[in-house]
Simulated assay, not measured.
Amino acid sequence: MGVAIRTAGEGDRELVVRLLDEAFQDDPVSSWVFPGAEYRRTTHPRLMAAFTDAVLAEGRIDVTEDGMACALWLSVPAADPADAHADDSEAAQVREVVDPDNERVELIARLTAEIHPSHRAHAYLWMIGVAPGHQGKGLGTALIAATLDRCDREGLPAYLEASSARSRRLYERLGFEFTGRVLGLPDGPSMWPMWREPR
Rank of each mutant, 00 (worst) to 15 (best):
G188Q: 01
G2N: 15
G129H: 06
V63C: 10
A37H: 10
M194E: 04
E177P: 05
T43E: 11
A50M: 05
D152W: 02
L160T: 09
D12Q: 08
Q25M: 15
Q93V: 09
L148H: 00
W192L: 02
A123G: 12
G184C: 14
D99Y: 00
L174H: 01
V182Q: 12
L143P: 02
P35A: 04
D88K: 10
R60K: 13
L72S: 03
A49N: 07
T42Q: 12
E10F: 13
T7E: 14
Q93N: 12
E96M: 11
A79I: 09
L47M: 12
F24D: 04
G129L: 08
D27Q: 06
R6F: 13
G188C: 00
G140K: 00
V105F: 01
E177Y: 08
V76E: 13
D53K: 10
E177C: 13
D26V: 05
E65H: 10
L139P: 00
T141N: 09
D62W: 11
L170N: 02
L139T: 00
V98H: 00
E106Q: 12
M1I: 12
P132A: 08
P81W: 03
D21N: 14
V97I: 14
R95F: 09
E90W: 14
G129P: 05
G138C: 03
T7P: 03
D99N: 06
R150E: 15
D80E: 12
A49F: 03
P198E: 08
R153L: 11
V182K: 13
E58T: 14
D152Y: 01
